[in-house]
C-alpha cells in the first residue's frame, strides 16, 4: 500500500526503542533513539528545514505586548495579543522563569544598563516571583504586586486595553482574543453570535473592575511598601529567593 517503505534498519531501531521504553531502560532508549534519528536523517538526506530567524528580538516583542496591555500576563496571553496586533505569526514565548532568569543575569552584571527588563510579578504575601507571569521593570512597583484579587483585575484591565486597541485598529485579527475575553466577563457578549463588540466588552470589563479595583489597589500598595522596605534592587524586580528544596524528591 505504501510506495515508500522505510528501510528495515529504521524499523528495527524503532522497535528496539519501544522495547527499551517498555522495559523501563531509559539509557538504552535514549541511545537507540539517537541512532534512530541519525538513521532517519541519513534516509531523508533532503534539504534541512529553513531556519526561522525573527527580525525583532524576543524580549523586545514581549516588551511591546506587555506595554500594550499594561499589566502582568502569562505567556499564552502575551502570545495571543502578539498574534492579534503585531506583525507575524503567533509568538512562542519561552517559560517565564527562563526568560526572567536571563534578564536577571543581565541586570545583576550591569544594573540598569538597559532601558527596561522583562521581570517578575511578586506575590503580595511572600514577595516571591509569582508563577508563570511576566512583567516590566518600568511599571510602578504596585502594578507588579499580585494580591488575591489581582489575577482578576489584571485580566479585566487587559480586556479593556485589548478592546480599546482593537477598536482603534479594527477588530479583525483580534476576533478570537476578544471572544475569549467576552465569554468570561459578565455582560460582555452583548453582540450577536460570533461577533464581539469591542466597546461593549470594554464597558463590561470596566463595570466588573469597579467592584474589585479599590480593594485590589489597597492590597497592592501595601505589598509594594513591604517590598520596598525588604528587598534590594534586584529583589524588587525578580522577587525574593525562594527557600531551596532540601528534600530532593524524597519524602522523609
Amino acid at each position: 500500500m505504501s510506495p515508500d517503505l522505510p528501510p528495515a534498519g529504521v524499523e528495527a531501531l524503532r522497535t528496539a526503542v519501544r522495547r527499551a521504553v517498555a522495559a523501563g531502560d531509559r539509557t538504552d532508549a535514549r541511545r537507540l533513539r539517537a541512532e534512530l534519528r541519525a538513521a532517519e536523517r541519513a534516509r531523508d538526506a533532503a534539504a534541512p528545514p529553513p531556519e526561522h530567524v525573527p527580525r525583532v528580538p524576543l524580549r523586545e516583542r514581549v516588551h511591546r505586548v506587555l506595554a500594550l496591555i499594561g499589566v502582568p500576563a502569562a505567556p499564552k496571553l502575551v502570545g495571543a495579543v502578539h498574534h492579534a496586533f503585531l506583525d507575524g505569526p503567533g509568538l512562542s514565548v519561552p517559560r517565564p522563569a527562563d526568560l526572567r532568569r536571563a534578564e536577571e543575569r543581565a541586570f545583576r552584571s550591569a544594573p540598569d544598563a538597559r532601558p527596561y527588563y522583562v521581570c517578575a510579578a511578586l506575590t503580595a504575601d511572600a514577595l516571591t516571583p509569582a508563577r508563570g507571569l511576566l512583567a516590566l521593570s518600568t511599571w510602578p512597583p504596585e502594578t507588579r504586586m499580585i494580591g488575591p484579587r489581582s489575577a482578576r483585575t489584571d485580566f479585566l484591565t487587559a480586556a479593556v486595553r485589548v478592546a480599546e486597541h482593537a477598536a482603534r485598529l479594527g477588530p479583525d485579527r483580534a476576533e478570537r482574543l476578544l471572544r475569549r475575553f467576552a465569554a468570561n466577563i459578565p455582560g460582555a457578549a452583548a453582540g450577536g453570535v460570533g461577533t464581539v463588540d469591542a466597546a461593549a466588552l470594554a464597558e463590561a470589563a470596566r463595570a466588573e473592575l469597579a467592584v474589585h479595583a479599590a480593594a485590589d489597589a489597597r492590597d497592592r500598595a501595601r505589598a509594594a511598601r513591604r517590598a520596598a522596605a525588604r528587598l534590594d534592587a534586584a529583589g524588587l524586580l525578580f522577587g525574593a529567593r525562594p527557600a531551596p528544596d532540601r528534600t530532593h524528591g524524597v519524602a522523609r
Partner: peptide
C-alpha cells in the same frame, strides 16, 4: 507507538507541509 512512532511521523508530516512522502510514511 504513540511516543516513538506516531508523534515523530505526525511532526514530520506537519514540518513537510503535507509532503506525500511524509504522508506515505505516516500511513505505513
Amino acid at each position: 507507538f504513540d511516543n516513538e512512532v506516531l508523534a515523530p511521523a505526525i511532526a514530520a508530516w506537519d514540518a513537510s507541509g503535507g509532503d506525500p512522502r511524509a504522508e506515505a510514511r505516516l500511513r505505513a
